[in-house]
């Protein structure tokens, strides 16, 4: 039983990371219709930037988070402006190809700047081991869980109540109508990339704090992909929940069945789920009024 609970807990922790990245996938997909294959790399870039800020300026952790958010937003806006803005009006498939190219470029860029070696992220969360009943977690792991809750809540409130959040949903539903309401649709796209960079970047920092900042972190982006599909790509919160589900399934299948299953279990789950619900667990069905 203890093994089971500990597996679930570590599944939830890694699932939080998947979930947050999946939220970032969903935000960009929902507002612009583009599947950003470079989300994992954007996450890695933000984590590396944050690491550099933390080591060079010796920032305390509470200060590092807001600074990272600012840097991430800037990275998101610049990437959107340089790579995505010139592609507007092109078929979505072409833009998706650009994001694949962007992914590989960012990976190489990071190795060029920071080198191929991993390094520990020292600005770690203090607290050491925390015991909750039979479950033992590091404070860094607890941070990831809390971050997931905070990001989910913030994303929910943003899309539900703020005017710009409602405008982003509106743009996703009917771009021309949004234009006619006076929404500057280009700014919405840039904002979506900024938010996605911030959200996934925080996940990157949480991940780097738990393990290390290393040039293979982008793989978490690929792992989050089934989470976003599972939850429904047009539903940020659903994608987040999908992340938790995939994380727990990965941890359980690794713990009980075998070592290699961690990476593929998520993909097996989405294949089965999509056969039953093609729009994902929490995705929006096309609304039709007859």
């Amino acid at each position: 039983m203890d093994l089971f609970l500990n597996l679930v807990a570590s599944g939830l922790v890694i699932g939080s990371i998947y979930g947050i990245i999946a939220i970032a996938f969903a935000i960009i997909f929902k507002t612009t219709g583009v599947l950003n294959f470079a989300q994992g790399e954007v996450m890695m870039l933000v984590a590396y930037t944050s690491w550099s800020l933390a080591t060079s300026l010796a920032l305390p952790f509470w200060l590092l988070v807001p600074v990272t958010i600012l840097a991430a937003a800037l990275i998101g806006v610049v990437i959107e402006f340089v790579f995505i803005r010139p592609m507007s009006g092109q078929p979505v498939f072409s833009i998706v190809m650009v994001t694949i190219g962007l992914a590989i470029t960012l990976r190489s860029l990071i190795i060029m700047i920071w080198g191929p070696d991993a390094a520990p992220f020292d600005a770690s969360v203090e607290g050491g081991l925390i015991e909750i009943g039979p479950v033992v977690l590091f404070s860094e792991q607890l941070f990831a869980l809390l971050l997931f809750c905070a990001v989910s809540a913030a994303v929910y409130l943003f899309f539900r109540f703020t005017r710009i959040g409602i405008a982003m949903r509106a743009t996703a539903m009917d771009e021309t109508s949004a234009l006619l309401m006076g929404v500057d649709v280009r700014r919405i796209s840039s904002l979506a990339w900024a938010i996605a960079a911030v959200v996934s970047g925080l996940a990157g920092v949480a991940f780097a704090v738990m393990f290390a900042r290393a040039p293979d972190m982008w793989f978490q982006g690929l792992q989050s992909f089934p989470a976003a599909i599972l939850g429904g790509l047009d539903s940020p919160l659903g994608s987040g929940a999908g992340g938790l589900i995939i994380g727990v399934i990965a941890a359980l299948s690794e713990g009980y069945i075998g070592h290699g299953l961690k990476e593929i279990s998520g993909f097996i789950v989405i294949i089965i789920v999509l056969m039953i619900r093609p729009y994902g667990l929490f995705g929006e069905k096309e609304l039709e009024r007859v």
Partner: peptide, 25 residues
């Protein structure tokens, strides 16, 4: 301000959210 052909409301949002979108500016 232009009311487009076929209404073009934001279908998944509530009436009030639709109206509030009109006052975006």
């Amino acid at each position: 301000v232009h009311v487009p052909e076929g209404r073009r409301l934001f279908p998944l949002m509530s009436v009030e959210e639709n109206l509030s979108m009109g006052a975006f500016l």
